[in-house]
């Protein structure tokens, strides 16, 4: 039996986790640099800047979620692996791509927006609520991509 279908499906799960995770690492890294800059001068702002740093971390979690759902869908987690044709495997791969690609890009840009918003906290900590909204806007598109990936993976019929 050809294993190509399952290889494609696993590649999809891997890409969802890899790309979205990479986006989050870049984003959290950028925001973390800005957070360190502020805390080195004013440690009292630690809690606020930490929240800002964590905002770009969600893409990695979304990628992980889609990865889990995909592994479960193809039966890898339950022990009863589904037989997949190459075409079915490619369908799973395509379903995983939205969160992978959008997670990578939005993670980086959310990190940059968080870093800029950390600048607001450095100067006007009372504006924390408003500052948090700017990076949160980027999150919208990661959630939309997550939604499509989950809907696509769960509704595929094998």
């Amino acid at each position: 039996m050809s294993q190509l279908g399952i290889v494609y499906a696993l590649l999809g799960a891997a890409l969802a986790v890899l790309l979205a995770g990479a986006g989050s690492s870049i984003g959290v890294g950028i925001a973390g640099q800005a957070a360190s800059g502020v805390v080195s001068e004013d440690p009292s702002k630690f809690a606020k800047v930490l929240i800002m740093q964590l905002l770009p971390g969600t893409q990695g979690i979304y990628g992980l979620l889609v990865g889990f759902i995909t592994l479960s869908k193809i039966g890898l987690l339950g022990g009863g692996m589904v037989d997949l044709t190459p075409q079915q495997g490619l369908l799973v791969l395509a379903a995983c791509l939205p969160i992978g690609i959008v997670g990578l890009i939005s993670g980086k840009y959310q990190g940059m927006t968080s870093a800029a918003a950390i600048g607001i906290i450095a100067k006007k900590p009372e504006q924390f609520g408003k500052a948090m909204l700017f990076p949160a806007m980027v999150e919208t598109y990661a959630i939309l991509a997550l939604l499509i990936s989950i809907l696509a993976v769960t509704n595929l019929q094998f």
């Binding site: 800059g37 502020v38 080195s40």
Partner: peptide, 19 residues
């Protein structure tokens, strides 16, 4: 692509600007 090598420095300067 944006260069982020000044991210730490700029954030620290933002904190210093309050002084």
């Amino acid at each position: 692509m944006f260069d982020t090598k000044y991210t730490y420095a700029v954030a620290r300067i933002r904190a210093l600007e309050t002084g």
